[in-house]
Design a binder for these strands. Structure first.
Ligand SMILES: [Zn+2]
Ligand SMILES: [Zn+2]
Ligand SMILES: [Zn+2]
Ligand SMILES: [Zn+2]
Lengths: 150, 150
DNA sequence: GTAGACCTTGACCCCGACGTCAACGCCAGC
DNA sequence: GCTGGCGTTGACGTCGGGGTCAAGGTCTAC
């Protein structure tokens, strides 16, 4: 099949397929007229790539899976190289999720506090002193030109 | 103080401060020689920006907080506009976290299955048929040129 | 033969938050 | 007066994953 058909079957664009080819990820054979030719295996490889992309893999990280499939192995993750990528991505993912979870927690607390202060006219609870308006000047050392404010 | 000192105090770079100024987020007064001049309030504003940036806010999303502080309000999130941003970011965050959680789950399952198949020489369990090597050809309709493979 | 649906390469554009020069001005100390 | 460390503006590069022309070649149907 040609590039447009493959793109349609895989739910992507021709530009994307040319991009993958330029990156050496999904090279295409050529017909007499110079048109790219693909077969069903390419569709399979492409499908693997898109799946991992949807998982948040970078393009380069899909390469072991594609190579594995191209080697004729039963599935893209049959090779240790693919499993290594899995494990690395899982660690990354855990780290990111944990980080976001903590951020979410902090932000939720900030919002709750701010809403409370907004409803009642209470004085702001103590937080990082630098994100508040100045009340009593008790800042760190200052440069020699700080009082030269226009 | 001058740009370098502010950058050092805030743990960022002069390039970043010029960028913020170009975006209208942290404009600077100028001395006679054309040098940018900052005071302690700028440090506070900058601190608010960096804090939110660390939370994953885009630069534009920090603007309500900065405006709020600049208006003399007790904290950057004293204004409803800031609270709206909080709420929007929380929703985004929840969505992202949930998505990542699901991806993590799927990937973990894939890894477990692949490891199992690697240890024992079992046939691959059924998954999306397109990410596996072909066994019995039973694909969908094909274009008129699929058999013309070189 | 000609429209128009496909294909080709090449080139530039996009996003965000800066990094990295280049070429120059200002100011301190010696 | 000269070096070195600051500052200035401007312009271009980065990263990933493509989008969007533009100018032309190919093939099929009418
Ligand atoms: Zn393999
Ligand atoms: Zn702080
Ligand atoms: Zn306010
Ligand atoms: Zn599938």
């Amino acid at each position: 099949m040609r590039i447009g058909e493959l793109a349609r079957k895989a739910g992507t664009t021709t530009r994307t397929l040319r991009y993958y080819e330029a990156r050496g990820l999904l090279p295409a054979r050529r017909g007499e007229n110079g048109y790219r030719r693909y077969d069903e295996e390419d569709l399979r490889l492409l499908h693997q790539i898109r799946l991992l992309q949807d998982f948040g893999f970078e393009l380069e990280e899909t390469r072991p899976f594609v190579d594995c499939l191209r080697a004729g192995h039963p599935s893209g993750d049959s090779c240790p190289a693919s499993l290594d990528v899995y494990r690395r991505k899982l660690d990354e993912l855990d780290a990111v999720i944990e980080r976001l979870r903590q951020v979410r927690e902090q932000m939720g607390a900030q919002l709750a506090r701010a809403e409370l202060e907004a409803s009642a006219q209470q004085p702001p609870a103590p937080r990082c002193e630098l994100t508040q308006a100045p009340s009593g000047r008790r800042e760190q050392e200052r440069g020699p030109d700080d009082d030269a404010v226009e």
